[in-house]
Design a protein around this nucleic acid. Sequence first.
DNA 1: GCCGCTTAGTTGATATATCAAGCAATCGCG
DNA 2: CGCGATTGCTTGATATATCAACTAAGCGGC
Lengths: 191, 191
Amino acid sequence: MDTTPRWLDADELAAWKRLVAVVELVPAALDAQLRRDSGLTHFEYLVLAMLSEAPDRTLRMTSLGQRTNATLTRLSHVVRRLEERGLVERFACPEDGRATNARLGDAGHAALVAAAPGHVSTVRATVIDALTHEQVEQLSAISAAILQRLDPHHRLQVLADTEPGTPAAAVGLPETAAPAVRAGGGAALAG
Amino acid sequence: MDTTPRWLDADELAAWKRLVAVVELVPAALDAQLRRDSGLTHFEYLVLAMLSEAPDRTLRMTSLGQRTNATLTRLSHVVRRLEERGLVERFACPEDGRATNARLGDAGHAALVAAAPGHVSTVRATVIDALTHEQVEQLSAISAAILQRLDPHHRLQVLADTEPGTPAAAVGLPETAAPAVRAGGGAALAG
DNA sequence: GCCGCTTAGTTGATATATCAAGCAATCGCG
DNA sequence: CGCGATTGCTTGATATATCAACTAAGCGGC
């Protein structure tokens, strides 16, 4: 870092301070609602959602870690706890003895389906419905620009498949789950 | 929450997924840089910065908690640790026997001055300089709209004084500190 | 087919955050 | 002025995240 960086001017400072408040409050709001209504953290929700998207509801730990932006260490602890609660199961990967697969069980899928509507409502209530359609598109572009700096090589798969026009959910219940959800009065982020 | 909320359409979903990545990565990036270069978390930095702004570099715990968006519990633990490290001191408020004042000591001020340039550079590198001036203003408006939903009564003082045209730093070293900083080759967010 | 390097994941220790009580000073009010 | 309610803060227990090894399986070269 430079020893004498350019300071922030008034507009930049205002934007920055507000962004700091947003990045502090948004995760807290998501966590609070999910914990209260479903007994899941936002991160656990993401893990379940990513598994629900995958073929056979199964992913390798490494791949799951990329999709949820988690270190393998963090993921290992969380998945162990989810396994203890009966929501996911782990088993050795047949093709690579080093790898572990995590699969979303029926109970886990049910928990996700039960949690999704409240989560989507919260997302709308706190973010999306607070903005005009134009602002939603601006936010998308701004976030993309920031992520370009934070993760230039797109290690996070969250980024890779986030172009507008994307098929289904990714943060909710896509493809596999969403139809079931819609049929059963369940839930997803997109659809 | 509604049992059958409106799902997100493709544009909304793209924006949402990117925002999730941003609110996950931005705090991590700030924490990582500050920890590595200054041995401070972003939250500790905020605490020191807020104190540096206050008259006599002193604030009540409750007021400090509002400005940093922290529960009193969290703040109490953090300030105790900062006190053990000699960066701040605590003393009973003379006017109200229940209250505790926290004051930024010289060592704490020095730590803040040392940490600020790297922090500002990181803010520029990861966020502000990634955006056009127009986008900075859009981000400011978007964040304000989101915060209106998350904190309608503006409990967070971060919001109260965040109108463009604001005097000095608030997230860096304002008024009291900034001049010293500029003189000594030090650091702040704004100036 | 051994040996060093890399990859994949786990585990235990430490740090930090959150929760549930608790304590003490002040306020409100009869 | 006395006593319950409120405010301001702290503390200890539990949960979660981060860090530093460590294990074990594959991979490459010779």
